[in-house]
Simulated assay, not measured.
Amino acid sequence: MTSPASFRDRTNWSGGYYELAIEVGSSDDARLQAVLSALWSAAGVHGCFGHGDREPEEQDPVPCTVGSLAEFGHLHGRVRLPTGQLVVCGCVAIRGGDDSGDWLDLYVPVGALDHAGTAYWDGRPFFRSGVMDDWLAAIGIETFNNAPFSLGVIGFEVSGCTDASTLAGQLPQTRDIGYLLPHGNALHYGAANT
């Protein structure tokens, strides 16, 4: 049986990504670092590695930093799902430059979810997992409490599907994905409802 925590098993990294995508709010290394550190801690990620094709025991850990993200493209680790299963996970930054802010995505590959036996699709024309959504929302809320951000979205490959300026502080009434939207010092979770 395939272990969903195996880095070397390429099927764990297949099928796309279920993710918490965070619009950091600016293109500033210090702010991105604060959100990255808070996110890694809130998710309880085990390890931080630059290579997703070698087991953690076969490589040296790397610092959980913006510099490591720039060097390796993605950071990899293992995270414990709400079901108790340990699975591979990763993180990537999408740098916005001068015109737009940065995004930071924490993801669990669908292949690892399959191997962990996590139900994430119920016949709808898009991927959905209420268990994963609620878990990622809790991670986002804890992250926000330590490093505020502009917006979080939760679901299957949701990074960049909207932004805080488009939402203008309002949750959509009909939601195909989950939203974490700041109101003052609090973060409000609007679960997917379609």
Rank of each mutant, 00 (worst) to 15 (best):
L106F: 15
G117T: 04
L106E: 13
D105R: 07
A119P: 03
F127Q: 11
Y107M: 11
V108D: 10
P109V: 01
G117M: 01
G123Y: 04
V110P: 04
Y107W: 04
G111Y: 02
A112P: 11
F127S: 14
W121P: 02
Y120D: 03
L106I: 09
V131Y: 04
G117I: 02
D133R: 06
D122K: 02
W121I: 00
S129I: 05
P109G: 05
L106H: 12
D105S: 14
F127P: 00
M132S: 11
V131P: 09
D133N: 12
M132E: 14
L106N: 12
A119R: 13
R124A: 15
M132I: 08
D133V: 00
D122N: 10
A116M: 03
G123M: 05
V108I: 15
T118R: 00
A116S: 08
D105Y: 00
G111T: 05
R128E: 14
H115P: 02
G130S: 09
D114Q: 07
A112W: 07
D114V: 08
W121T: 04
F126L: 15
M132N: 09
H115M: 01
R128Q: 14
A116F: 02
G123C: 07
F127K: 13
Y120C: 01
Y120S: 02
R124W: 08
Y107N: 11
F126I: 10
L106S: 13
R128C: 10
G111E: 05
P125Y: 04
F127G: 13
G111H: 03
S129H: 06
V108E: 10
P109D: 04
H115W: 01
V108P: 08
F126S: 15
G130V: 06
G130Q: 10
G117V: 03
F127L: 13
V110R: 12
T118N: 01
V108A: 09
T118W: 01
V108C: 10
P109F: 02
V110I: 15
V131F: 03
D133H: 14
F126M: 13
M132P: 04
A119F: 00
F126K: 09
